[in-house]
Amino acid sequence: VTNKITEEESLGVPHHLLGVIDPDADFTARNFCDMASLSLKLIVNRGKLPIIVGGSNSYMEALVDDNEFRSRYDCCFLWVDVSMPVLNSFVSQRVDRMVEAGMVDEVRNMFDPTNADYSWGIRRAIGVPELDQYFRAETICSDKEIHARLLQEAIQAIKDNNCKLVSRQLEKICRLRDLKGWKVHRLDATHVFTKRGKEADEAWEKLVVAPATMILHRLLHNFGPEVYTKIIRAAEAAMATATH
């Protein structure tokens, strides 16, 4: 239900803070800041470049606004943007893939008919509360047509709520850029999402990886050549793991 990156997709690039939180924990922005700060220190101490990938813009904002973070680090914000019609279509297809991969059974294992509180932990994630009525119907009704209808309604609600979330995230990115003065570099990946296979990979390299690498070149030009080379190589490897 979290659509977490798979080991195969990570291509050997270390990813931090994935699968380390109890699903029932009420994980706050403050918790994220504390854990992210520790990971950042460990990465920097190894001479590597930490790349913070959202995720929740609220958590990202809390981290960047943290006094300790601001005193230690300079930031380069890369915004991989896609036009809303194309992105909404992609979100819908992604939900279908998540369902095919077993999301419904995963959420069923969390379902508790005595608990309708979806305000904490993993239970508040999009994809969990939407399936509540479907799971309740399974326990009290044997009509397969009703089950099928409720499941399709739940899946559509998951798609709709994901699209609403995307819209809110877009609004927040613009607010952080325009009102808070974040230096956000927009990378338009719309064309990537209209392609498949090799064409999509080539478009990703041209429209996202190449300009992002150039931005990092400009940011890091004051570093020594050895550190600079290591950081650029690490960043290029990390960008290559992004999926489209």
Score class of each variant (00 low, 15 high):
residue 4 K to N: 10
residue 4 K to W: 09
residue 8 E to S: 06
residue 10 S to E: 14
residue 11 L to M: 09
residue 15 H to C: 12
residue 16 H to E: 08
residue 18 L to P: 00
residue 18 L to V: 05
residue 20 V to A: 00
residue 21 I to T: 12
residue 21 I to F: 01
residue 22 D to Y: 02
residue 27 F to V: 14
residue 29 A to S: 08
residue 29 A to Y: 11
residue 30 R to W: 00
residue 30 R to S: 09
residue 30 R to A: 12
residue 31 N to R: 03
residue 32 F to H: 08
residue 32 F to Q: 01
residue 35 M to W: 04
residue 38 L to D: 04
residue 40 L to S: 06
residue 40 L to D: 07
residue 44 V to E: 04
residue 45 N to T: 06
residue 45 N to P: 00
residue 46 R to G: 06
residue 48 K to T: 10
residue 49 L to F: 12
residue 51 I to N: 15
residue 52 I to Q: 06
residue 52 I to Y: 03
residue 55 G to T: 13
residue 56 S to W: 02
residue 57 N to T: 13
residue 59 Y to S: 07
residue 59 Y to K: 14
residue 67 N to E: 12
residue 70 R to Y: 03
residue 72 R to L: 12
residue 75 C to V: 11
residue 76 C to E: 02
residue 76 C to V: 15
residue 80 V to T: 06
residue 80 V to I: 13
residue 82 V to E: 04
residue 83 S to F: 09
residue 83 S to W: 01
residue 83 S to Y: 06
residue 85 P to S: 05
residue 85 P to F: 02
residue 86 V to T: 08
residue 87 L to G: 10
residue 89 S to E: 08
residue 90 F to G: 07
residue 90 F to A: 09
residue 91 V to L: 14
residue 91 V to W: 04
residue 93 Q to Y: 13
residue 94 R to L: 14
residue 95 V to K: 02
residue 97 R to I: 11
residue 102 G to E: 05
residue 108 R to F: 02
residue 110 M to Y: 11
residue 114 T to Q: 12
residue 114 T to D: 15
residue 116 A to M: 06
residue 116 A to C: 08
residue 117 D to H: 06
residue 117 D to I: 05
residue 118 Y to N: 06
residue 121 G to Y: 03
residue 123 R to G: 00
residue 125 A to I: 11
residue 125 A to D: 11
residue 127 G to H: 08
residue 128 V to W: 03
residue 128 V to D: 01
residue 128 V to P: 00
residue 128 V to R: 00
residue 134 Y to E: 11
residue 138 E to T: 06
residue 140 I to A: 05
residue 143 D to Q: 01
residue 144 K to A: 13
residue 144 K to D: 05
residue 144 K to W: 02
residue 146 I to P: 04
residue 146 I to W: 04
residue 147 H to V: 07
residue 149 R to Y: 03
residue 149 R to V: 09
residue 151 L to M: 09
residue 153 E to K: 12
residue 154 A to S: 15
residue 155 I to W: 03
residue 155 I to M: 04
residue 155 I to E: 07
residue 159 K to R: 12
residue 160 D to C: 07
residue 160 D to R: 11
residue 161 N to E: 15
residue 162 N to H: 12
residue 162 N to D: 08
residue 163 C to R: 15
residue 166 V to W: 02
residue 166 V to A: 15
residue 167 S to H: 15
residue 171 E to Q: 12
residue 173 I to V: 13
residue 173 I to Y: 09
residue 173 I to H: 04
residue 174 C to G: 03
residue 175 R to Y: 10
residue 181 G to F: 03
residue 183 K to Q: 15
residue 185 H to K: 14
residue 185 H to Y: 06
residue 185 H to V: 14
residue 186 R to A: 04
residue 191 H to N: 13
residue 194 T to L: 13
residue 196 R to S: 12
residue 197 G to E: 01
residue 199 E to R: 13
residue 200 A to N: 03
residue 200 A to D: 01
residue 202 E to R: 14
residue 204 W to H: 10
residue 205 E to H: 03
residue 210 A to T: 07
residue 212 A to K: 09
residue 215 I to K: 07
residue 217 H to V: 05
residue 218 R to G: 04
residue 220 L to D: 00
residue 221 H to I: 14
residue 224 G to F: 01
residue 226 E to L: 07
residue 227 V to T: 13
residue 228 Y to K: 08
residue 229 T to F: 04
residue 229 T to W: 00
residue 231 I to R: 10
residue 231 I to D: 04
residue 232 I to M: 07
residue 233 R to P: 00
residue 234 A to V: 01
residue 239 M to P: 01
residue 242 A to I: 13
residue 244 H to R: 15
